[in-house]
C-alpha cells in the first residue's frame, strides 16, 4: 500500500474501504459482524422461548385452549406466507445489488454508473410485504383487544373458562403471545427503517459498487426476523 502512487490509491479505494485488503475481505468482515449481532439475537429470543416452553409444558391444556380460542391459525399462516415472500424479494434484491458489482467490463468505470437493475422495486416490494405483515398483526391485536384478552385493566373474563382450566394460565399464554409477537413486530419496524434507508440510497445510486454489502447485511437481518417468525408461528398458533 505504501508504494502505491497517489492516482492509483484513489482508484484502489473506489471498491473497498482503506482499512481492508480488498473488497472480498470487506464483504467477509461485514457479514461476520452481522452474524455476531444475530447470534446475540438468537439468545435474546431463545431465553423467551425457553420460558415459554417450560410454561407450555406445565399448563399445556390451558395453552392449547387459549391458542385455539384466541389466536387465528389462518392469519398466522397468511403472515408466514407474507414473510416468506418478503424473504424471497430480499434474496433477489441482494442478488441484484451484488451482481451489479461484479458485472464484467465495469471495473474501470467510475463508481456511480447508475442503479443495479430491479434493486429499488425489489426493496419497495419487500417493504410493502413487511407493512402487510404488520397490518395483519395489528388486526389480530385489535380483535384480541375487542375480546379483552390484551394484558390490562379488563384482561380476560374468567367466567368463560371451561372446567379444569385456570384463567391465570390463559392470561399467562396471552402475555407470552404479546411479548413474543410484540418484540418480533418491533424488529419488523426496525427492518422497515433499515430498508427505507437502503431504498433511498439505492434510488440515489450510491450502491453502485461495494455498498452492496449494506444491502446484504440488512438482508441478513430481514431473513433473521423471518426466521424468528418461522418458529413463533407453529409454537404459538398450532398447539394441538
Amino acid at each position: 500500500m505504501t508504494s502505491a502512487s497517489a492516482p492509483a490509491t484513489e482508484h484502489e479505494h473506489a471498491d473497498h474501504a482503506h482499512q481492508f485488503d480488498d473488497a472480498i475481505q470487506q464483504h467477509e468482515a461485514a457479514t461476520l459482524g452481522m452474524w455476531t449481532f444475530l447470534a446475540t439475537e438468537v439468545l435474546f429470543f431463545g431465553a423467551l422461548l425457553t420460558a415459554y416452553t417450560i410454561y407450555r409444558h406445565y399448563y399445556f391444556d390451558a395453552f392449547r385452549y387459549a391458542s385455539h380460542e384466541y389466536l387465528r391459525w389462518y392469519l398466522g399462516a397468511i403472515n408466514t406466507g407474507v414473510l416468506l415472500c418478503s424473504s424471497l424479494t430480499v434474496a433477489l434484491a441482494v442478488h441484484a445489488a451484488q451482481h451489479h458489482d461484479h458485472a464484467p467490463g465495469q471495473s474501470a468505470a467510475p463508481p456511480r454508473i447508475g442503479q443495479p437493475k430491479h434493486l429499488v422495486p425489489l426493496l419497495l416490494v419487500t417493504m410493502l410485504l413487511g407493512l402487510v405483515f404488520l397490518c395483519i398483526k395489528g388486526t389480530e391485536y385489535y380483535i384480541d383487544y375487542r375480546e379483552n384478552v390484551v394484558p390490562g385493566p379488563s384482561f380476560f373474563h374468567p367466567e368463560h373458562v371451561p372446567p379444569g382450566i385456570d384463567a391465570s394460565h390463559i392470561r399467562l399464554f396471552m402475555t407470552f403471545y404479546f411479548i413474543l409477537t410484540g418484540i418480533h413486530a418491533t424488529h419488523m419496524i426496525v427492518g422497515l427503517g433499515l430498508f427505507s434507508w437502503l431504498t433511498w440510497n439505492a434510488h440515489r445510486g450510491t450502491f453502485a459498487r461495494t455498498r452492496s454489502n449494506a444491502v446484504e447485511i440488512c438482508g441478513l437481518y430481514w431473513h433473521f426476523v423471518d426466521l424468528v417468525w418461522i418458529f413463533l408461528f407453529p409454537l404459538l398458533y398450532l398447539i394441538r
Binding site: 452474524w35 447470534a39 417450560i54
Partner: peptide, 21 residues
C-alpha cells in the same frame, strides 16, 4: 468463520434449552 459464528448461536441456544428443560 461465518459458519462458526452462525453455528455458535444455535449451539448455545441448544445448551440453554437442553440444560434448562
Amino acid at each position: 468463520l461465518t459458519w462458526i459464528f452462525a453455528s455458535a448461536a444455535f449451539v448455545w441456544l441448544g445448551i440453554m434449552l437442553v440444560l434448562t428443560l
